[in-house]
């Protein structure tokens, strides 16, 4: 090859393999998402995580607390299903963090970063795969909940709303956990710390038990934090109760969190080493 040929070939390659642009970002994300899904479908632990865990939790809580709750005039199945849904989404996101940390550990992430593919593709692909997993989880959890007596009182729209809000929540959770994986990098470290965001936000929420049941000094946190609002909005959707206030709070929180997490995650991704 002569020098001119080479220059021309380089120019041509640069043009053909250009990584910028939205359609590129979407196409690349889907390819990586597909790969993540293949991986997920081959991990036995994921199957228990998706199939068994949410249902075991739902059953255990229902059996243990339904009677006591009905003494407080709470129909516990209606009350409980939203937070069990969100908990399942938290588990989904926690698993996404482990997988991302695994990719960092094996060098897969570096390989992708050195390829002419969209900068958004790795995170986008992660999100796509875990949204699919979230949908599968919902498709199993909601029918079981129905068998236990859970009902959508406002028809099809409330079901769609419930699913969309849940998926939005999952998006935020996966992005947030991606941050954790990108920051900590070591899989075992990530594995032992995924519990840290989960514990306070999910458990110190009004999802399992109304805020009034908490000690007074804890109540402000319980009332204001995002998981409580999203759980309340999901309950309102299912029960066909006034929706506007909890929904606005939830969506507001989720948008704020998503933009914060998203920008930080992309920033970390660009400079990870």
């Amino acid at each position: 090859m002569t020098a001119m040929d080479l220059q021309a070939r380089a120019k041509q390659l640069v043009k053909v393999r250009c990584e910028a642009g939205l359609s590129r970002a979407i196409a690349d994300s889907f390819i990586i998402g597909q790969r993540n899904l293949i991986r997920l479908s081959r991990q036995p632990a994921v199957i228990t995580g998706v199939l068994v865990f949410p249902i075991v939790f739902l059953t255990a809580f229902l059996l243990a607390f339904e009677r006591s709750m009905s003494a407080q005039n709470i129909d516990y199945i209606q009350y409980l299903v939203p937070i069990i849904t969100l908990q399942a989404m938290f588990f989904t996101a926690m698993n996404s963090a482990s997988n991302l940390a695994g990719d960092i550990d094996t060098g897969m992430l570096q390989r992708c970063r050195a390829m002419p593919i969209s900068r958004a593709a790795v995170l986008g692909g992660l999100l796509i795969a875990y949204l699919v997993r979230a949908i599968v989880t919902l498709a199993i959890l909601l029918p079981v909940a129905y068998l236990y007596g859970f009902r959508f009182h406002a028809g099809v729209f409330s079901i769609i709303g419930y699913i969309l809000l849940t998926l939005f929540f999952t998006t935020v959770a996966v992005t947030g956990y991606a941050l954790l994986a990108l920051g900590l990098k070591k899989p075992d470290l990530v594995q032992s710390l995924v519990i840290v965001p989960y514990a306070p936000f999910l458990l110190l929420s009004s999802g399992f038990s109304p805020a009034e049941n908490f000690p007074t000094w804890l109540q402000p946190f319980v009332v204001i934090q995002p998981v409580s609002h999203v759980a309340a909005a999901l309950r309102a959707l299912a029960d066909s109760e006034p929706l506007l206030v909890p929904l606005l709070w939830s969506v507001g929180w989720l948008i704020v969190l998503l933009s914060g997490f998203g920008f930080t995650a992309i920033w970390l991704y660009r400079r990870i080493s």
Partner: peptide
């Protein structure tokens, strides 16, 4: 971005997907 269009990289530790087959890796 232009540079990435011109290079291939084999890192120090084989970065291929354990759970995927060799063929699936290459197709990806």
């Amino acid at each position: 971005a232009a540079v990435r269009s011109l290079i291939g990289v084999t890192g120090q530790f084989a970065a291929v997907d354990e759970e995927l087959t060799a063929r699936e890796n290459l197709v990806l």
